[in-house]
Design a protein around this nucleic acid. Structure first.
Lengths: 162, 162
DNA sequence: ACCTACCGGTTGACGTGTCAATGATGCTAA
DNA sequence: TTAGCATCATTGACACGTCAACCGGTAGGT
């Protein structure tokens, strides 16, 4: 897949066309993310981070999860999660308590306020995804977007492993 | 382009497939952005914000620009730019002075340290873009990525205008 | 002349993210 | 037993972004 055409071989830097597409792509996806963020914020007073945490907890057994389990599930560093949980706890969306089974473990619990906030956020959030992403693209483009994401992810993973 | 197929008409929420692609897409592009950020950071001790500012100033007449002109050029809010320039000024990358021509205007100047930092950052940064983006995709996928970005941008602009 | 309204830019408060350091606790090997 | 060592989680310092308030000055309308 890499360097498939002769013209690409041996070149070190992107062409002007590639660079333009890169800029369009990275800036537009960033703008898309922040638009989603602000939609979620005004619809529900939640950030996408809050949403990710609440989603994971909602689907968990007993609406509770060990902290590092949660971090792994949503792909965050523990430090980030810890800061975020602190803010969410202040707002009453979750609670933390000592974990009975694992020493030194922290159990994160969904509060009723958290569950309700999540419930109220879901439909507007999904609707926003549809408006801003699904409806913006043709079915072919959606498939292509999935393939592009997969290819980029593979590259990121390959370079991380190395 | 929107609601092109009968099956899509009238539905409010994304399907499970669309949602999966959405998540892959938005998370992967976000990861790509932060990987680029950290590459730039370790190669050059610059953030992508620093890079954008330095790039604009490098290309400007006299390597200087009015503050709000600069903000418009790179598409930032004035407040964001002001904060960022404060940090960059502390590090000696730029300088600010009263603008001679426009009363109440601030002129942003590139320092020699800033120019050198930018010069040293360019090649590694472009190389990283090639490795992480261009080389990860087939030529067709790059074209598709450009078209997807264009379509998403059009949607964002349309909804912002409304 | 005066009041108002905008304009360019800064500031403060706060949410968010990363990195490195710190505690607290168990596991393992000399 | 004890000296490391990894693991789980938190913390502090700092960079970055947004929002709203603010400040100083210019321009228009009366």
């Amino acid at each position: 897949m890499t360097d498939a055409t002769p013209a690409r071989r041996g070149r070190q830097l992107p062409t002007a066309d590639e660079l333009r597409i890169w800029r369009d792509f990275i800036e537009t996806t960033a703008a898309l993310g922040s638009r989603l963020e602000s939609r979620l914020q005004s619809d529900s007073s939640l950030s996408t981070g809050d949403y990710a945490v609440l989603l994971a907890l909602s689907e968990a057994q007993g609406q509770a999860m060990r902290s590092s389990e949660l971090a792994a599930h949503i792909g965050w560093e523990r430090s980030r999660l810890s800061h975020h949980l602190g803010r969410m706890e202040r707002r009453g969306l979750i609670r933390r308590q000592e974990c009975a089974t694992v020493p030194r473990g922290a159990e994160v619990l969904l509060t009723t306020a958290g569950a309700e906030a999540f419930k109220g956020a879901t439909v507007p959030h999904l609707r926003a995804i549809r408006e801003l992403f699904v409806d913006a693209l043709t079915p072919d483009q959606i498939v292509a977007a999935g393939e592009i994401a997969t290819a980029l992810r593979a590259r990121l993973d390959a370079l991380r492993a190395e």
